[in-house]
Design a protein around this nucleic acid. Structure first.
Length: 267
DNA sequence: AATGTACGCAACCGCCGGCCA
DNA sequence: ATGGCCGGCGGTTGCGTACAT
């Protein structure tokens, strides 16, 4: 099946949005919502395609968007999440309230990647760093390093250490540095635990991870040095089987201790 | 002051999967 | 089962601006 290009119709405007167009779009959405993006331009009188309207709203005009520079905490969160999720910008954005996937993608490509390269290898030139740019993958770039883990045992929290040599490996070390309490701890992760999670197609986020595996993750969270234990409250929806994304939320908390889902952490 | 270069960001493009007739 | 519509996603592009020469 061949689909016509989105903006093939003559007369549809492209390029930067004007304040007038912004005003029309915001006014329309505030009044009527955005149930149908394709129909929206016609109904609102905008000479834009629906896709362009959606993008403008989602990435710029939404009232809940946080403008301004990324804080250090946000940057660290992005680094940690990218380590876990790879280039799943929308998934990362879902964990950073007020930030869009586009914004996170931009800040990653323009700022964070360079910072990480410098931090990891100060002598390496940027051009050299780009040579090691990993190819986009549907799985997290660190999947292989997870798989290298040999055995699991309950114990202190520590992010898995990556032994590959691509540019993104830097995020592993950065994460370690961010977790001072666990930086020097030996981590052994059951290969089956990660392989089961990581083999799950990211497009099937409804796929569940067995509760026993998640129980192993709970064990990981028991960190005596920071006196942290994790419980899975029933009202959060943990009830025998757990969603993939919930696991990622869980690990995000474990890694960063940022309290993104504070009800999961009890100190 | 003029020109060249690097950088950041907004927007576009193409693809994919879900949904529905 | 099939085809079309639609929203969403990630990669890429191009423009504007800041900085360097």
């Amino acid at each position: 099946m061949v689909r016509a290009p989105c903006c093939e119709k003559m007369g549809l405007k492209k390029g930067p949005w004007t304040p007038e167009e912004d005003h029309v779009l915001v006014s329309y959405i505030q009044q009527y919502g955005h149930d149908n993006w394709r129909a929206l331009p016609k109904l609102s009188g905008l000479l834009r395609c629906g896709k362009s309207c959606r993008l403008r709203w989602m990435n710029y005009l939404r009232p809940d968007i946080k403008r301004g520079n990324f804080s250090r905490e946000e940057e660290e969160a992005i680094i940690n999440l990218h380590q876990m999720l790879g280039n799943r910008w929308s998934a990362i954005a879902a964990r950073l309230p007020g930030r869009t996937d586009n914004e996170i993608k931009n800040v990653w490509h323009t700022s964070l990647k360079k910072k990480l390269n410098l931090k990891q290898n100060p002598t390496r030139t940027e051009a050299q760093g780009q040579e090691h740019e990993p190819k986009p993958e549907s799985k997290p770039e660190n999947a292989s390093c997870y798989a290298k883990s040999e055995s699991f045992e309950y114990g202190p929290v520590s992010p898995p250490q990556c032994t590959t040599s691509n540019a993104d490996e830097t995020s592993s070390s950065t994460t370690s540095e961010n977790n001072n309490s666990s930086a020097n701890m030996d981590t052994n992760i059951d290969e089956s635990f990660w392989s089961e999670i990581l083999s799950s197609d990211r497009n099937t986020s409804n796929e569940t991870v067995s509760s026993s595996h998640f129980d192993q993750a709970i064990g990981f969270a028991e960190d005596p040095q920071v006196n942290t234990s994790v419980e899975l409250p029933m009202d959060y929806g943990f009830n025998g089987s757990y969603m993939y994304d919930d696991c990622m939320d869980f690990w995000y908390n474990v890694f960063t201790r940022a309290g993104e889902i504070p009800e999961l952490l009890e100190i």
